[in-house]
Amino acid sequence: MRRLREIVDPFLLLLLCTVALASILPARGDGARIAGAAADAGIVLLFFLHGAKLSREAIWSGAKAWKLHLATLGTTFAVFPLIGLATQQAAAIPPSMRAGLLFLTLLPSTVQSSIAFTAIARGNVAAAVVSASFSNLLGIALTPLLVALLMERSGTGNLVSLSSVEDIVLQLLLPFIIGHLARPWIGGFVTRHKAMLGRVDRGSILLVVYAAFSAAVVEGLWHRVSRTELLLLTALCIAMLIFVLLFTLLLGRLLGLKREDAIVLQFCGSKKSLATGVPIAGVLFPAGAVGPILLPVMLFHQIQLMACAVLARRYAAAAEGTP
């Protein structure tokens, strides 16, 4: 049962239930406006808490192990986007879902799962904390910038409006900065109530997903996406993950990283954050476009957890000398 929980993310099951609820009972009219306002408030709260959680010590310590951190960031924000641009040639997938694939590749790394799998694999946990935290910190600014630069040029359409710049500042950057500045006063509370605030984080994401998929369902999402397209999308996500896992493995050897640091590069460099991607998509894109764009992110999230859970256990077995 414990291994099943490691492979199947319980939160993903909640997300799937939320998508199912939005598909059966989508928010319409006044309900849609209320859901949208609640989702916006959830995004502000989410990034306020992200700012309050990140210690200044973690930011300054990022200057150490620069080779590892640069390799991880380069994989996350350079290699992945190049793969995302390559996927835009998959004409069998609708343009909105191709945009989702590209958006997926522009996201920062995960934090919790990257650190957890590094620990299971007997890797450098301290370096994983710094690398994943830096990736998320930079992603708040870099992901919207990359979206603006690459999505229009790739032919996916100009989905990002000019007002998105204001939304990014007001809903993402400003709450994050205020939360970080307030850390000396609320940092202890955040640490003591980590489990409760984690539920607030996840509740905010579920609100955004419900509002996004409600708008997409009202506009006919499930009538426009076939099973064949979903299967092709899943295959592309699997191929993308395999490529990056092999790339980070070879890059670690090329750079001469120690085994513990090479594990950090592989797990932090191959991940994409659902927790960051959902609220950023909710801010950047029109309501009707968010649902299809989030489909690849949700698929990749579960695929990466399943693959990395198996990989981490293999690394742990090798470290212990067991078959």
Rank of each mutant, 00 (worst) to 15 (best):
I7Q: 13
V8W: 03
V8H: 04
V8K: 09
D9M: 03
D9K: 08
F11I: 08
F11P: 02
L15R: 01
L16Q: 11
L16I: 14
C17K: 06
C17H: 11
T18W: 03
T18K: 00
A20M: 11
A20V: 15
A20Q: 03
L21D: 11
A22V: 14
I24S: 15
L25H: 14
L25I: 13
P26D: 13
P26Y: 08
A27C: 06
R28W: 04
D30W: 08
G31M: 11
G31F: 05
I34Q: 12
A35R: 05
A35D: 15
A37N: 14
A39I: 11
D40A: 10
D40T: 13
A41V: 13
I43Q: 00
V44Q: 10
V44K: 10
V44F: 09
L45H: 00
L46F: 01
L46W: 06
L46I: 00
L46H: 05
F48G: 00
H50C: 12
G51P: 04
R56Y: 14
R56L: 14
A58M: 10
W60N: 06
S61N: 14
G62I: 01
G62H: 02
A65I: 04
W66Y: 07
K67W: 00
K67G: 10
H69Y: 03
H69F: 07
L70C: 05
A71R: 00
A71I: 04
T75N: 00
T76S: 12
T76A: 14
A78E: 06
A78M: 11
V79S: 05
V79G: 02
I83R: 00
L85W: 10
A86I: 12
T87K: 07
T87L: 15
T87Y: 11
Q88P: 15
A90L: 15
A92T: 13
P94K: 01
P94R: 05
P94V: 12
P95C: 13
L102D: 05
F103P: 07
F103Y: 07
L104D: 05
L104M: 07
L106W: 05
L106S: 00
L107F: 08
L107V: 03
S109K: 02
T110A: 01
T110Q: 00
